[in-house]
Amino acid sequence: MSNRWIVVLKVLVHAACLAPFAWLVVHLLQNNLGPDPTAAVTFFTGRGTLRLLVLFLAVTPLRRVMPSLAWIIRFRRMLGLYAFFYGSLHLLTYVWLYAGFSLSAMIDDITKRRFITAGLTAWVLMVPLALTSTTWSIRKLGGKNWNRLHRLAYLSAIAGIVHYWWGVKPGVQTPMPITLVLFALLIARPILTWWSRRKMPASS
């Protein structure tokens, strides 16, 4: 993949990641988000976060399965930062439209309601990743430490999925598809490692 194509693709990925946000802002200004706009914004930003997190986590396994796609690593940081962006919008929706910026209401929620605790955990786990997403940080921390730290992304995604399940009514299955995708990505890592180890002796 030539650098020129990478630049073009990066522009496209930025546009694809920002388009939902633009859509949301336009419809918010038009007061055109359906009967329950608060809930619409909540689900829109929440689902967006989980989808971006899953895309972000898919990069490494994909590269290992298809070495010709190795260049997609150059898009991973963007995807992660956009996941953090939508996650922060989701959190802002809660702080503003649910808690009304009331600290006592938030403390009450976080301590009493496990689905809110799980959601906040997912967001908090993303903070150090976003802060250390620069190339400078990778150099400073060293590749090994940085990699270890950035495995928190898996934990964050798990907390996000748990938050989704605990948030919906018992018996409702809407979080199932994204849960299965995340599960596949989680087991892909050990399976691919085992697979490459098995192949190694034969090829050497």
Partner: peptide
Amino acid sequence: PRWSQKTERRIGASIFKQR
């Protein structure tokens, strides 16, 4: 268990006036 019942969102109201 999952949310407070102290307030409610009025359907059809604009987003910042729902609660």
